[in-house]
Design a protein around this nucleic acid. Structure first.
Lengths: 261, 261
DNA sequence: AACTGATGTTCCATAAAACGGAACAACGAT
DNA sequence: ATCGTTGTTCCGTTTTATGGAACATCAGTT
């Protein structure tokens, strides 16, 4: 329990670069990586080289760009099946989305931040900012608050510290104090609402998912637009949402799954 | 162009451990990792610790096991969408499998070895050893030989060197010489057959997929059992298989995709 | 063809990090 | 209470990474 901030160690730097390159979502040139990384030319070059010879990155000689490597892709497949709730939760999410005909999100927590791992948009649905694989702050999303509220005290404390409290809309919590007050309310109620805190016009109702020994392992939410529905309207999804969360939780508990950080 | 064998550098070691842990497909204890890794207690412990603080692995305190971490899961999602042919090829594979009602595999190459990235089994289909994410030798599979045959000379040479030539069945190529002879024939014919070289009773017909500037980027195959069909029977899938390979290739060429190693 | 700026790559003395034997802790079984 | 198994920490030594600077490569310009 020593370091966690200011990535240290060679491996840490390498992972940072890997993360960076992959997050581009396309092939990236050396200079593009340099522009967003803190390392000097020579160091970055060596790190990229190392990752490439390791097969974690690939280098396209025709276009002079770095891309995710095949080794990473193979590892990715295993990691996804094993540690994301997505494959396990998919049928429940699917059936919830079909029942209520609204967009459903499944999220987990990485180091205090929200990672979306699955999303179902019904036929007539609309898009939200959430995309599987995308990572956002927990202070401004329904799923984020649902997870934060039910973390144990220590984890919640560290998670609250890493939030940016960036105000995406006027409704976003921009201080720890107001956020903590709402978390207490969420703990009492069992449900979290997103009141246009991330995107103007988008609201959601979210429930935490509990795994073994009441650890939070994720959250599900139903999202909609203020043009279609009000917060009171979302309230009627509460029973179905809680049922879905419970189903995923009990499935996740019996499976040899990790507890989320 | 220096090293490639005998993993070097701290990052290399860390990636090796990561690969190992994730490949278990379940939570693993410290000692299990130690038993299959060449590192002494203290070193391994530090490597696991590093990967864990980096979020590439997670540690389940209840069960004392290491699991893939959320950061890896998030990276996984990006890597998979970007560098595996799976999302892009899915519709073509799907339609081929439906048309001919046989098992279809999609594979790419990692460092001379075959990685399966997608698999469609029709209703009445049967299972093969291939699983998405699984890595096997190229000398004993249809897709492997299809890719090897059309690699450029240098890549083929290095790829041929890493094969184990393990004889899974009496039909497996167990020497470079016989394998190279067949590769020449495959180059002339445009198609590779698996004549029960990996699993007794399983045969397949495979075609290479070409991306930009005629680089091989993967292979598709139709697999079946000797109880259902003979090699001559598979031959009749040739046109459909080649068409599918061409479709995936042209899609993959227009997309900003990596060339496979 | 020579010039120029932008982009990558290599060298190598210095600085930092990893290494791993050994001693130690924690746990569970007899 | 004792002992074997499993996991963790310490710290002097060894290995590896670091990054400034010089060099190479390439595309565009005059």
């Amino acid at each position: 329990m020593n370091r966690q901030l200011g990535t240290v160690g060679t491996v840490g730097k390498a992972m940072e670069i890997l993360d960076l390159v992959v997050a581009f979502g396309r092939g990236v040139r050396f200079s593009e990586v340099r522009d967003v990384s803190p390392y000097p030319n020579a160091t970055l070059h060596r790190l990229l080289q190392t990752l490439t010879t390791q097969g974690m990155l690939g280098y396209d000689e025709d276009r002079h760009v770095y891309v995710p490597g095949m080794r990473l892709v193979r590892i990715a497949h295993h990691a996804w099946n094993q540690s994301s709730l997505a494959p396990l939760a998919e049928p429940f999410i699917e059936s919830l989305a079909a029942d209520i005909n609204e967009t459903v999100h499944l999220a987990q927590m990485e180091n205090g931040l929200v990672v979306f791992v699955e999303k179902k948009v019904p036929e007539n649905g609309f898009q939200t900012l959430a995309r599987p694989g995308r990572r956002v702050g927990a202070h401004c999303t329904g799923v984020g608050k649902a997870m934060l509220a039910f973390l144990d005290d220590e984890r919640r404390r560290t998670a609250l510290e890493v939030q940016t409290y960036e105000a995406f809309t006027p409704a976003t919590h921009s201080t720890v104090e107001t956020l903590e007050r709402e978390l207490a309310a969420i703990r009492a109620d069992g449900i979290a609402f997103d009141r246009e805190e991330h995107e103007q016009g988008i609201i959601s109702i979210a429930a935490p998912i509990f795994g073994r020994s009441d650890h939070v392992i994720g959250a599900v939410s139903v999202a909609t637009s203020t043009f279609r529905m009000s917060l009171e309207g979302l309230e009627k999804f509460r029973p179905a949402l809680l049922r879905t969360a419970a189903q995923i939780g009990s499935e996740g508990a019996s499976w040899p799954y990790p507890v989320s950080q």
